[in-house]
Design a protein around this nucleic acid. Sequence first.
DNA 1: ATGCCTCAGCTCCTGAGA
Length: 262
Amino acid sequence: MKLATWNVNSLNVRLPQVLDWLAAQQSSGAAVDVLALQELKLTDDKFPFEAFSQIGYQAQCFGQKTYNGVALLTREPATDVVKNIPGFSDDMARVISANVQGVRVIGAYFPNGQEPGSDKFDYKMNWLKGLRDWVREELAKHPKLVLMGDYNITFDDADVWDPVGLKDSIHCTEEERYQLRALIALGLHDAYRLFPQAEKSYSWWDYRNFGFRRNQGLRIDHILVSHALKPLVKACVIDKSPRKNERPSDHAPVIVEVGNED
DNA sequence: ATGCCTCAGCTCCTGAGA
């Protein structure tokens, strides 16, 4: 089973790239079974269900105008779909979860937080607490669980191109990293770090200042897997190939491959 | 530089992203 997450920064703009990428994954060996998308920036009535259907994907969509918006694309049917975090009131469309092929899959667009001390940072902290309380319950119900998306948090300095210059700045604060470790402490594992990886591996690069060309990036898109899935994880990679497109997203997709139990 | 780029929208500027 192959799962992936990708912040597309407008599905209107990136739809052809997502379709191409899914087709390329399929022809390269194994098709993506579940793709979690973030930052759709469109409402459900504008979601391109037909385009995905034509290449074999069903879509569960939780859209929003202008900002946010998330979706799960699946080859097999998705059941028990839940939108946002039960018990946490939120007017932003950030989370969608479903059962797919026996796995509870949560796709999430974590708040940006803007700047430590800001209202948006407080919202981010409250959101993270709400997420954690809910994921704790989800893990109890679904031992096989994947939590993936744009976390907008780096684990540590290895995820940061300039840890000195960006010390304590947004995505790199100790408060955010504490929240990320608290999620891990529920019984989750950073799939990417289960394997040897090249140094200076990032999933996001600033559009400004030739960030990608200079590899001035952050690793803020993550796939966390539960204890039960950890021994089944075969690989986890960041795929920079969509950056070759003319108008790429500022995020690259992250992919995890999970084997069967037998 | 509270900038640099990209996207959406009550679109020729502004807010937000990260």
